[in-house]
Amino acid sequence: MREVIVRTISGVLYILIVIFSMYTSREWFMALFFLLGILVLKEFLKLVHLTSYIAYVLLAAGLYFLSYNTFADQAVNIYLILSCFVCLFLFKDMLWTSKIPMFEKKKYITTIFYIISGFVFLTLIPFSNGTFMPEIIVAVFSLIWANDTMAYVIGKSFGKHKLLERISPKKTIEGFLGGLGGSLIAGFIIFKLTNIYNLPIWLCLALIASVFGTIGDLVQSKFKRQAGVKDSGNLMPGHGGLYDRLDSVVYASPFIFAFLEIVDYVS
C-alpha cells in the first residue's frame, strides 16, 4: 500500500507540473521538454556508459530545428522514418537477442533516434493538426498514465501469467490487458471531454499508447538488465529515475505522431 501511495503522489505531482507548463505558452512548453530531455538523456548516457556533451547539443538542435522552428517538413519525415525503424529494431533485439547490439556498438544511434527523437516528436504532437493544441499532448500523457497505472494495479492484484519474465519478471499478461483496458477507457473519457478527434481515433491512439508504451518499458528494462541496475536514477520517489517514468512515452511518441500525421492527411 505504501508503494502505491508514493507512486501516486509522485506521479500526480509530475502530471501537474507537465499540465501547468503546457497551458502557459509554447515557449514554456518547449522549455519544459528540453529540461526533461536533458535529465532523461543524462540518465540514459550513464546507463549505456557513454560520456558525451555532443548528445546535449543534438537534443537542443533537434528540438529547435525540427520542432520549435522546423526548417523542412521533409527532414521531419525522414527523421520520423529512421526513428521508427530504430525503435522497431530495439524491439526485435529485445525479443531475440541476449544483448541489445546497439547498447554496445551503436550508442549514438540509440541516443539520436530513440531518446532525442522521443522528445522531438513529443513536442511535435500538439502541432499535428497545424496549430498548437496542448490538449492533445495532455491526452497522450493521460493515455500512457492510465495504461501504466492499470497495468500495475491489475498485475499486482491478479497477475499470474508472465509477459516476458526474462526481461521484466514482474510484468504479467493480465497486467498488460488491464493497462490496455485502462487506456481504452481513458480514450473514451477524453473523447467525451474534447471535440478534437472522433471516438475511433481516440481508441486507436489508446491502443498505440498502450502497446508501444509497454514495449518501451520492456526495452528500457532490457537496457537496465544489461547495465546491471534496478533503476535509471533516483530523481522521483517511487518511480526511480525520470527515464523510468518517461520510458513508455519516449518510445511511443514517434508512432503516435506518425498516426496523427496519417489522420490529418486523410482528413
Score class of each variant (00 low, 15 high):
Cys87Tyr: 03
Lys99His: 14
Lys99Leu: 08
Ile109Trp: 09
Phe89His: 09
Thr123His: 12
Ala60Thr: 10
Leu95Ile: 08
Ile112Gln: 13
Lys46Trp: 12
Leu124Ala: 07
Gln74Cys: 03
Phe85Ser: 10
Phe85Val: 06
Leu95Lys: 02
Phe89Ser: 06
Ala72Ile: 07
Val57Lys: 00
Ile78Phe: 12
Ser67Leu: 09
Leu50Val: 09
Val48Tyr: 03
Thr110Met: 15
Tyr53Ile: 15
Trp96Tyr: 14
Ile115Tyr: 05
Phe91Gln: 03
Leu63Gln: 00
Tyr108Asp: 00
Ile125Gly: 03
Ala75Ile: 13
Tyr108Leu: 09
Ile116Thr: 07
Tyr53Phe: 15
Thr110Tyr: 11
Leu66Tyr: 04
Tyr64Gln: 07
Tyr53His: 12
Pro126Trp: 10
Ser83Thr: 06
Glu104Thr: 11
Ile81Trp: 12
Tyr79Arg: 10
Tyr114Thr: 11
Val76Leu: 10
Met94Ala: 06
Tyr79Gly: 03
Ala61Trp: 08
Ser52Gly: 13
Tyr68Glu: 03
Tyr68Ser: 11
Ile109Lys: 00
Asp93Glu: 10
Ile81Lys: 01
Thr110Arg: 01
Glu104Ala: 11
Leu59Val: 00
Asn77Pro: 01
Tyr53Pro: 06
Lys46Ile: 09
Asn77Gln: 09
Tyr56Val: 04
Ile109Gly: 01
Ile78Gln: 10
Ile125Gln: 06
Lys107Arg: 15
Ile115Asp: 07
Tyr56Gly: 05
Tyr64Thr: 09
Met94Val: 01
Ala75Asn: 05
Thr51Ser: 15
Ser98Phe: 03
Trp96Asp: 11
Tyr56Met: 07
Lys106Pro: 00
Asp93Asn: 14
Leu90Ile: 05
Leu82Pro: 01
Gly118His: 03
Ile78Ala: 05
Thr70Asn: 15
Ser117Cys: 12
Val120His: 03
